[in-house]
Computed example of a mutant assay.
Amino acid sequence: MADSPFIVEVTAENFEEVVIQGSAEHLVLVDFWADWCAPCKMLLPVLSKLADEFNGQFVLAKVNSDQQQSLAQQYAVRSLPTVKFFKNGEIVDEFMGAQSEGQIRAMLDQHIIRESDHLHQQAMALQSEGKTDEAISLLEQANEIDPGRTVIIADLAGLLLQQGDLEKAETLIQSLPDSEKEKPEIASLLANLEFAQAADKLPDVSELEKTMAGDENNLQARYQYAMLKINAGDYETGMQQLLEIMKRDRKFEDDLGRKTLLKVFDMLGDDPVAAKYRRQMFNLLY
């Protein structure tokens, strides 16, 4: 850690050179800390790991606040640890207290353009032109050179789901930490994956339509039909069928109609269609 070229002990004597001048060439994170500060000791290994991982895209400047009180006062440090982000000699971001690695990564992503960002942008431009295979190839490259970035994994998994490569999509999504899986965009992908996996094992639509025409109370067929429609992107038809299951038998498969609707709502997020059927479900329940 002490031998890292990307971690520097900073004093009043070298602050101008390391932080003010240095931040004209790269992002500088100034970590105000003290020996007696337990959260500082928790934070330092995380910052040091990231500094080495980012390989010079930012420099970690450590300021012992007890020894460098003039710097702490100059930059209005009120609690420890305090980390300030410098670009071009100016503070552009900051945080106080020990933060998780994921939170710090998210802040770094706002201030550092990586090679994977360029590949990601190119990939999404290709996708908008309908060149999905080429987009997937670029996103795979981005994930290889900069693994574990949620934004890249989410878009790559989403395209793989569109292409029907469920196994690879699932592997990618499951590689994310549990905290990332709770994010709305990842929860949506997980729901999408679940529908795709279920639909992959079902009879075709025409066969289910014949079954339902012959027996409108065949709720298993109706449920399978809903799953196929949702997986195909026909969310309204799918949700209509799930509501119909609720109307006919709330006890069917332990209230499967309602539970599946909730998963669709998670998948669609703020989509107005989801809001429409959420209201209809609420009216049906109450």
Rank of each mutant, 00 (worst) to 15 (best):
A196V: 07
A213T: 15
D3V: 09
V264S: 00
S188M: 07
K229H: 13
L190N: 13
L126K: 14
G148P: 03
I153Q: 02
Q69K: 10
V92E: 04
Q69D: 08
S188H: 10
L71R: 04
L190I: 13
P184K: 10
V92D: 06
L119S: 12
L190E: 14
R278S: 10
N192M: 09
I113H: 11
D35F: 09
D109Y: 10
E90W: 03
L47R: 03
L71V: 00
A24S: 14
D271W: 07
L159N: 15
V151F: 14
F85D: 05
L43E: 10
E115C: 10
C40N: 02
L119W: 09
V83S: 03
L126P: 04
Q121S: 13
S79R: 06
L243D: 08
D35V: 11
G148N: 04
I152W: 08
E140D: 14
D266R: 14
S175G: 05
L243R: 00
L161E: 05
A198Q: 13
G238M: 07
L176N: 01
Q241L: 04
F6E: 09
R222C: 05
L161W: 06
E253T: 07
D109P: 06
E115G: 12
R78E: 11
I152V: 15
D271E: 10
K84N: 06
N14L: 02
D254K: 15
L285A: 09
R279D: 13
R78Q: 15
T260F: 09
T211H: 06
R279V: 12
W33M: 09
H111D: 00
Q197C: 10
P81I: 03
A38G: 08
V19K: 04
K84E: 08
M124D: 03
T82D: 03
L159Y: 12
A106V: 06
D200V: 12
G97W: 06
D155M: 12
G233Q: 08
Q21G: 07
V10W: 00
E182G: 09
V10Y: 00
W36G: 00
A34G: 07
K168L: 10
G22H: 00
E53W: 01
E13R: 09
E209V: 11
Q174E: 15
K84L: 14
F85A: 01
Q163K: 15
R114D: 12
D52F: 01
S23K: 04
L261Y: 05
V92K: 00
D52V: 00
T82P: 00
L284P: 07
D178S: 12
I186W: 03
D66W: 05
P184A: 00
A157M: 04
A76E: 03
G89S: 05
H111F: 02
I245Q: 09
L47A: 02
N217K: 02
T132N: 14
D254Q: 14
P147K: 06
I113E: 14
K251C: 08
Q280L: 15
Q127N: 15
P272V: 02
W33G: 08
H111W: 08
A187I: 09
G89D: 04
M281Q: 11
T132M: 13
L193E: 13
S65A: 13
P203M: 08
P147F: 07
L268K: 03
L159V: 13
